[in-house]
Design a protein around this nucleic acid. Structure first.
Ligand SMILES: [Zn+2]
Ligand SMILES: [Zn+2]
Ligand SMILES: [Zn+2]
Ligand SMILES: [Zn+2]
Lengths: 145, 145
DNA sequence: TTTAATTTTGATAATAATTATCATTATTAA
DNA sequence: TTAATAATGATAATTATTATCAAAATTAAA
């Protein structure tokens, strides 16, 4: 649901007494349409076609705001740059398998891993804010080549 | 055991017909003494005290060689820079809990998570090269403050 | 032990991703 | 309309890393 993201976005702006802006709204709306994972530069390239004159700094600022408000989550996928995606809408968290040959990303959810993650944190009296499991290797297609 | 790292280091140099060097050996020996996680800059600062005149490029080159030879593994811990540590010596893999308040890193190993990680990869016909689970949150000490 | 081929090195330039700065413009509430 | 404040684009600065290249070190052969 896009509405949950909208609530988070609006609430964040309200709670931090920010002003509204055309361009921030445009970036937010555009990001909601994206499926999958993207970088700041990805969105900059795409939005530049619609809104010439937009600066990349505004994309950085907005993406940061969207992460802070819980609309997006950030990953690195083993690289030293940010990869973003819409945050999970339900209670269900998902993790990633990244093919080091073609870059393909496979998403998965595993209840046993989830519960054990929470269990081990509890053992160490650690409060979880977030967690990510990344599996690197070869996807089925790349194995055959 | 330091010897397993030594074998990997020596083998890598031999197999790639590299020449030996005082400074690379010094960096390798120094890194073996380190316990825990470190950055390139950490080692550069430390080794500079012993070996004035060493260049940071040599540290970068050597650390990259040590990762390629299996002596070290690289992590990001949610940051956009490399964190390194001696690779696990036994079959047992370990993961990390990172306190976002004080930076403390807690290591753990969980057999159930491990086996489910391999199981889910198998389901997707994915060959695992490596995997990492990072848990971000508050350590026990920081919760009390 | 000289020589010659090749690797390693340090200094530094280049690159990539991101954040900071700052003058201008936009938004908002009075 | 105005006054206060936030948002913006251009661009400088920062951080982590890699690339370049001439000089020094290593190695095996002569
Ligand atoms: Zn692939
Ligand atoms: Zn995902
Ligand atoms: Zn802590
Ligand atoms: Zn560790």
């Amino acid at each position: 649901m896009a509405s949950q993201s909208k609530v988070r976005y609006d609430s964040y702006i309200q709670e931090n007494q920010l002003k509204s802006s055309k361009r921030r709204d445009l970036i937010f709306e555009h990001i909601l349409q994206i499926q999958g994972h993207f970088t700041v530069d990805n969105i900059y390239q795409e939005i530049s076609k619609i809104d010439r004159g937009i600066g990349i700094a505004t994309i950085y600022r907005t993406v940061k705001l969207l992460v802070a408000s819980g609309v997006l989550t950030e990953q690195t996928f083993g690289e030293k740059k940010g990869w973003f995606e819409i945050a999970d809408q339900k209670l269900e968290h998902h993790d990633h398998m990244i093919c080091t040959s073609c870059g393909k990303i496979i998403e998965f959810h595993n209840k046993v891993i989830e519960s054990n993650t929470y269990q081990i944190a509890k053992t160490h009296r650690f409060i979880i804010y977030s967690h990510k499991l990344e599996i690197f290797g070869l996807c089925n297609t790349c194995q055959k080549q």
